[in-house]
Amino acid sequence: MKALSLCNLRKTYSNGFEALKGIDLTVEEGDFFALLGPNGAGKSTAIGIISSLVTASSGSVSVFGHDLNTERDLAKSCIGLVPQEVNFNQFDTAKSIVLNQAGYYGLPHKLALQRTEHCLKQMDLWDKRDTISRRLSGGMKRRVMIARAMVHAPKLLILDEPTAGVDIEIRRSMWKMMQEVNQQGTTIILTTHYLEEAESLCRNIAIIDEGRIVEHSDMASLLARLHIDHFILDLAEPLTSAPIIDGCQIELISDKVLNVAIPKEIGLNHLFSQLTAQNIKVMSLKNKTNRLEQLFMDLVTAK
């Protein structure tokens, strides 16, 4: 079943800016889907329309088969939204924020209390339940928003840059949590500027640019299109000039560091055998750039 279906969705703001120019998009049930795009590409507008915060100029949105115009309540009940910026009452406690949201979705009080406890525990916030939310750290505030979005057990969870501005430790714990939520059957749509995040979490991807979908495929086949990998090699001994290997572009960054661009068809074995033949000993190697980042740049700059 399709968790989300957008059909010829358009949005023109009152100032004449055309944020969406007729996008079509489908997300399958159970997917972990990345919606990427540069700033101002139309991601937040699309998410705003799906979550009823922005009125579409034309087109249709269907959530688990429920049309957002004709079966609004059913469609809304399927969605949980974690917005980009903190948007809860900062004078309320974490518990009351989540509990009130359960009330807005019509959960009876007893069930709302159970769900609130479950979600706050899942977000590791139960100990902070009675803390006024403005006293929580940035990472905790984001987790409060995730708990709030999860309290009515939505089938589709939309995370709009959930890890922006949080430290790497919290980010990784949030990745783990998102994966667990997805494994439990919740479809997730993630927008993020951390392309490493999208690459490691998501199975399918759409890239939106200037109000149009410029790419919509599964992550594996998108990454397979990348022909050249870039590596940084740390050497044991200093060099005075970059070695020459057929098919590879090698640059000497400093006397013990090489920047290597190597086509996929050549492979690392060939590179290492050639370096060994030239008595160059490699101590360590790392990817120079995130692979998805490179594809992303190729797609959004290819106009």
Binding site: L53, K76, L81, N87, Y104
Partner: peptide, 8 residues
């Protein structure tokens, strides 16, 4: 937005 996203 808490109210607008919910079916209220």
């Amino acid at each position: 937005e808490e109210l607008l996203v919910a079916p209220v």
